[in-house]
Design a protein around this nucleic acid. Structure first.
Lengths: 228, 228
DNA sequence: TGTACATCAGTGAACGCGCGTTCACTGATGTAC
DNA sequence: TGTACATCAGTGAACGCGCGTTCACTGATGTAC
């Protein structure tokens, strides 16, 4: 979660009091939950603290007890989602599923599984599919997402860099950024075209896997993979 | 630009009067221009019609003469950007640059050129890099972007479908959606990491090209491209 | 186990502000004769 | 070329509303003895 210091001036994003009683914890969670619902229904720009309070059945001061403003709520939601997603990806990497030595189809299948699991986490969080979008569209929140992408990219570079030392680290990092970005973008595409979920998942996995393969093979001394 | 009918109820998105005099046209353009500037500075949610008027040096009724609300302004900006980008892609396809018969490196270079040109169009429009984001994050505007992606995807299916008839049309469409999505996502990544522009462009081109290659080769009777 | 007290959690009501939007109007531009 | 009139473009000032936020308060929960 890194650099909390570099926050843009004027907008406090940290949560305030941490709830200590059960009732309070329930309220805190309810606020996040309701915000997630509303995100999908009305979008960020029309979302307001008053609206959240009405839907949650609480009064504004209860909300302000925990959050200084709506951006802090969104940030907390984003932080949690990123954390959950990152955990899945990091675990997957540690288990060595990111390696490219076995069969191509097997590697694709492994990656498709990963994509499915990451999306499942997002779907289980109310409004989860919208939060990623919000993290990008709201300037003050971009950092949360950037941190997450950075964390994942680093882990990929570490893992694959160790396994395939001949691959240029810079290119590996670019590849990591791109594949992470494509995976996220594909998720958002599925929100618009849910009937294509399965195909999009497998094809995204294929696209990423083919690319890493080429990257690894090209650097292993036998030149660009398959020039024709 | 297709289905104008399916607009969400309650939010009018069409522009109102078309300006007929030079002064009016200048005002119209100024509004779009200023909105683009502000988009990057404050984000969609804090953007307001009053704010636009102040920056443009006009009074609110002047703005309301042409636009019913801020979403109509954003829609017009989005519509223009999508139109300009689509035109470039469609022309590129018609010139046959999307074919995959020549050398791999040549195909990648052609595609990188395309990506660069598309991005250039976005950059030339004030706030252009933010508009794509807004088109996705604001529910009422998603249709504009979806239409554009759809247009491009269709063109790709037509072109490649004619050239490589053995490729399954459904898969081709999925591929078209994915590649378009990746290209867009990469553009947004470059906003955050401008120093990586060149690498990200070439690697995005590589990723897409490798994928199409595999798709085409796999269906041309010799099975999956390179199983190991 | 009961009670007094401290702390935590949430309420009711209101505030000032900037939002989107509109009214009745003035000034600029174009056009007919 | 000049003038009268129609239309177009933009102004000044205001509106009601919902926004974010805060005040002084009540009720709920936990704790010490």
């Amino acid at each position: 979660m890194a650099k909390r210091s570099k926050e843009s001036p004027g907008v406090e994003l940290r949560t305030k009091l941490a709830p200590s009683q059960d009732r309070a914890r329930a309220t805190f969670e309810l606020i996040l939950d309701v915000t997630g619902q509303l995100l999908g229904e009305v979008g960020v720009e029309r979302l307001s603290t008053n609206m959240i309070c009405v839907r949650a059945g609480i009064t504004p001061p209860a909300l302000y007890r925990y959050f200084p403003n709506k951006y802090a709520i969104l940030r907390e939601m984003g932080r949690r989602l990123m954390e959950a997603e990152d955990a899945i990806v990091l675990e997957w990497l540690e288990q060595g599923h990111g390696h490219l030595d076995g069969s191509l189809e097997e590697a694709i299948k492994q990656r498709a599984d990963l994509l499915t699991r990451v999306r499942k986490v997002a779907r289980e969080q109310p409004g989860g599919e919208w939060i990623q979008l919000v993290m990008r569209a709201v300037p003050v929140l971009r950092e949360v997402r950037a941190d997450s992408v950075d964390t994942v990219a680093r882990a990929i570079v570490d893992q694959l860099g160790a396994r395939y030392p001949s691959v240029d680290k810079g290119r590996l990092r670019t590849a990591a950024l791109l594949s992470t970005t494509l995976a996220n973008a594909a998720s958002e595409l599925i929100v618009d075209a849910p009937q294509l979920e399965e195909e999009l998942t497998i094809e995204t996995a294929r696209m990423i896997t083919l690319y890493y393969r080429d990257l690894v093979e090209a650097s292993e001394g036998d030149g660009p993979a398959k020039e024709s």
